[in-house]
Design a protein around this nucleic acid. Structure first.
Lengths: 169, 169
DNA sequence: AGTTTCCGCTTGCACTTTACAAGCAGTCTT
DNA sequence: AAGACTGCTTGTAAAGTGCAAGCGGAAACT
């Protein structure tokens, strides 16, 4: 790639600044979706197949994910985050917190971002350790931030079921 | 706009996820460039005039900046950040820190991001207060983070002059 | 007063990226 | 052997990006 400038914010935008890269990374990171079909099948935003394929290729080229074939299932490819992508946890937390505050986020998904933001750098570090375990083969940490986020999501979803509002139609 | 999903990270990407929005906001925020000509003239990345115009319009529509005419110069438009944009300081800090660590940032620009990251949330809060002063008419804070970042930049630039390396050609 | 410069754009055109729908080759299951 | 699964590719259209030129009105200069 031929770089526009050496400013780190610009460089980050050049790598992540499109409509899908961060969303795909979010799905792998927070949803633990590891295959093409998983990501496509669970995509909230309904990513098109060609876009997903091109993003997986680009993220691989940029060193954010690595592809490995599933031992017991030759045509299945397993994607794993690299340290470079795991280091985006603070970016995800900041973006999520901003979205919750200023954009019309749904209560359930907002709950995850709120929990991640409230947990602060200590929780982010624990989450990164968990991702290193899931994606890089590091030892399993004591704390599962993914499980905590899932509980926050469930609690918000249950609250929405108990107290439905007209805006949730 | 018709939203893809209510996930806050996705919503943030829908607003900020292109190749220029964050870069323009960075110039207004860190460079204190307040007019079209200022932003275009100082643009490190050489933004095209039509792109800049369309971004300023979009950022205005999204409520991230507001346009006001200069009292003493009728044809000049002064752009100011809103609280919504000022709240992006942690996002900028996280993106900058990530770019410094994983992408080929130049030493001078890296120095600003490193200083902003090292300052942590306390520095970000002071910076946001300074931006509220410059853009929203709030009282002037005691600390100028912009001046501190400028000093970090100058120090790195001077160090590069004293110790030039082949890679800086 | 008239010319020139400044300012914030707009227009035209080519190219790239995104989007939606359909299809396809190899693998696995039954 | 037949059908479904998996990870894509292809075709086509729309939207976004990039470059260069130009333009209407205001300000500055002489």
């Amino acid at each position: 790639m031929d770089l526009r400038s050496g400013c780190p914010i610009n460089l980050s935008v050049e790598v992540l600044g499109d409509r899908w890269s961060l969303v795909v990374l979010r799905d792998i990171m927070f949803g633990n979706f590891r295959t093409y079909g998983d990501i496509h099948g669970h995509s909230l935003e309904g990513i098109a197949t060609n876009i997903l394929a091109s993003r997986l290729k680009r993220l691989t080229d940029e060193g954010l994910i690595v592809a490995a074939s599933d031992p017991g299932h030759k045509q299945r490819t397993i994607y794993s985050l690299t340290e470079k992508a795991i280091a985006l946890v603070p970016v995800m937390a900041a973006l999520g917190a901003w979205g919750v505050r200023f954009l019309p986020a749904s209560p359930q998904f907002a709950a995850r971002s709120i929990a991640l933001d409230a947990g602060g750098p200590a929780m982010w570090a624990d989450f990164m350790d968990e991702l290193r375990h899931l994606h890089l083969g590091a030892p399993a940490p004591a704390r599962s931030v993914l499980a905590e986020l899932e509980r926050a999501y469930r609690a918000a979803a249950d609250a929405a079921d108990l107290h439905p509002s007209a805006s949730d139609d």
